[in-house]
Nucleic acid binder design. Sequence first.
DNA 1: TTTTGTTGATTGACGAGTCAATTAAGAACA
DNA 2: TGTTCTTAATTGACTCGTCAATCAACAAAA
Lengths: 195, 195
Amino acid sequence: MPRLGMEPIRRAALVEATIAEIGRLGSLDVTVGQIAKRAGVSAALAHHYFGGKETLLLAAMRHALSAYGAEVRARLSRAEGHRARLEAIVGASFSEMNFCRDTIATWLNLYVLAQRSDEAMRLLRIYRHRMRSNLLHELKPLLGERTRAETGAECVAAMIDGIYLHEALHEAPPTPGAACAQVSGYLDLLIGDAA
Amino acid sequence: MPRLGMEPIRRAALVEATIAEIGRLGSLDVTVGQIAKRAGVSAALAHHYFGGKETLLLAAMRHALSAYGAEVRARLSRAEGHRARLEAIVGASFSEMNFCRDTIATWLNLYVLAQRSDEAMRLLRIYRHRMRSNLLHELKPLLGERTRAETGAECVAAMIDGIYLHEALHEAPPTPGAACAQVSGYLDLLIGDAA
DNA sequence: TTTTGTTGATTGACGAGTCAATTAAGAACA
DNA sequence: TGTTCTTAATTGACTCGTCAATCAACAAAA
């Protein structure tokens, strides 16, 4: 039943199926067969479009990263004032979407993959750079001093990652609200201190 | 060449070989064969002593956790004063040992494994509990207020994990000194604020 | 000779990637 | 309108390799 123009549809389906399978197993030990089955196509088709498993995995990670990026942008566009924009970034990082099983698994495995895949490391670097740059942009006016803002951005970014890790790997369900509050408290210290 | 009393020696060798292999590959896709070869025994022996791959992997993680715990205790025993003891905990977390390839890989894969293995999650919980408890013990006298100290411990722990992640997954070699300094800066804010 | 340590050989299962073949959508054309 | 050609879409079957786990057997102490 070859309808034309299926390529983008299949690619998207396969990428989503990949993320779902990573979430189901919690690791990258997913088989192309399982992914393809979930996407409703044959394993051969996955190879046809992506060339190999590695490419497919990376495409899935890129997709997750880009979804997160979109969330950040959406929230930023709705926020007024430096402090509110900082909270927007934090809020996006602890959004419901980010705490769903699939997303958590994707992130954790991106870390693991970054150890051996240059492309995964590149993705991670891009994510971090954007995060740092977003934070810095709002912190600079609030903190005045340049180096202070840079260190601050670095530390806020680290705290976000750390808290995310903590909330994501917990028997109890994650509490995005508490996570935001903790970062907020740190921001208070950071900013209040400069005033 | 069966000498007696080999069991503990073999177990240790296998555990160390497991960590080394995890470090080499960066993931848990290590084969029992590779591990056994590195330990200088047959794959069958690994099964003989550990029963299966999963158990061996978990033993390796437990070993890494316990090495870290020993480092913390060693540094704590040499530190005088609350602040110095806090720095000791931080220093142990960013020790050279913790930034070697093998250790990084073991940690990252513990996170991944914790998603699906109750035992891995248990290990993680133990590590976190000890960290939080250690931090709290020193922060309480410095911060006075109880809830303040608890939140503080939580946040310092998160920042340590976040910075570790950042330093560990970086093209450039890690800079433990900078990592310590960042946490130290946060401690200054936290403590200075209470005075 | 019983226990402890040890292995080679084997098995059974599974998975990535390849390939030749099939289907049908649309284009060109008479 | 019907015919033929081209090409995207798609798959089943196959190859080749790998790996965890098992087992039967052997070596050396005690």
